[in-house]
Design a binder for these strands. Sequence first.
DNA 1: TGTACATCAGTGAACGCGCGTTCACTGATGTAC
DNA 2: TGTACATCAGTGAACGCGCGTTCACTGATGTAC
Lengths: 208, 208
Amino acid sequence: MSKPDIATSVPRQQRAIATYERLLESAGELLAAHDFEKVSTNLIAEHAGVSPPALYRYFADKYDLIGAVGKRWIGLKDKLILNIGTQIKEDPDYVLTSPMVEDLLREMVAITEDFTGGVAVMRCLRTVPQLNHIVNESHDEMARSLCEAATSVHTELDEAEIYRQVRLSMEIGYSAMEFVLGDPSIDRKTTLRDASLAIAAFSDLIQS
Amino acid sequence: MSKPDIATSVPRQQRAIATYERLLESAGELLAAHDFEKVSTNLIAEHAGVSPPALYRYFADKYDLIGAVGKRWIGLKDKLILNIGTQIKEDPDYVLTSPMVEDLLREMVAITEDFTGGVAVMRCLRTVPQLNHIVNESHDEMARSLCEAATSVHTELDEAEIYRQVRLSMEIGYSAMEFVLGDPSIDRKTTLRDASLAIAAFSDLIQS
DNA sequence: TGTACATCAGTGAACGCGCGTTCACTGATGTAC
DNA sequence: TGTACATCAGTGAACGCGCGTTCACTGATGTAC
């Protein structure tokens, strides 16, 4: 699924794995420094120290490459959410509160800042039509997962309604992250607290 | 300011005004049907029934043209916000409530749907780096305006804090609009209500 | 009211550019005997 | 342990394409006398 083109191959030799990794890193570094449209395949290859055709051995096209970078970042972020689902299932008395949502947002912001080019990657996942499905699929998967965990423990909850609430929470969380990461002059702590209060205001999963 | 290049001119003759308007309309119609990157200047000109160079009489470049479309839409949206500022100033007892915010969001959604290519225009204002400043300037201007209105009437409010809250409200409102406009399967009414509750949860301007 | 003239509006053809991508190829690596 | 061979990894050069934009020009409009 992540390798749509049968012509692309998975790196096997050490040298190949190193090249693959350098391509991903280069894409991240270049996205951090330039607008998406300036980051061409030729530039990525050059920055990675390989010739342009080398890129097409591992990636079907430009979007497949940038998408692979995006999936790495989004995977880190998703792990935090999946953890919450696990805790809900394991402990029937587990309750989410808005400070916990605030911590979650802060951790996600930290992950994004640690990830090379993370802020730019986050932006262009939302921004580039060909990459959009990656965010949508992740949000959908995460919402389903949380939803399934919550309704399996609290059977009185309406699944469709919880799903909708979680999806909206993710949209709000994502935009709050983009807001604080995009404008360093914003009071980050207060803004993330407000965003968590905002989410708590309508979510049945969060104790107010 | 909206005509950065001195070589571009304002349309004077009736024929010219018609051409100018057709270019804006064409851009909107094409954005509604195709991804931003597929909407080229040549395509816009063709769709408007003029030759490509005609476009450069009125617009410095592609972004100036798309930006002009964006400013039209954003101007309609901003009028609603400015109205609220006016009401705050005129009536010292005027209080905002979350249902009022919900109505505001609904009106903005309606305006966007009525505007040709509005949903696409909204997206690419956020999406295209060269157009980003238009949204940022509008949000900043609107936040300042509301802030000034509120603090002139309620002098106990902290201006910087109110500004931050209003900016965050706008980010959340914008993303809620993108969410419901981008996915027709979402329960629109409930989601806009939740978004208004979310905003009310942290805003000192809104009575809870 | 008619005409001369300045300015405005729009055209046809072509441009340079950099993009993503492909081709035919060479060199590197790993493996079987 | 050495060698032959298959496969993997990466290269140099070039491609077609469509983009945004410009140039030198013609035709349309409005205005002054």
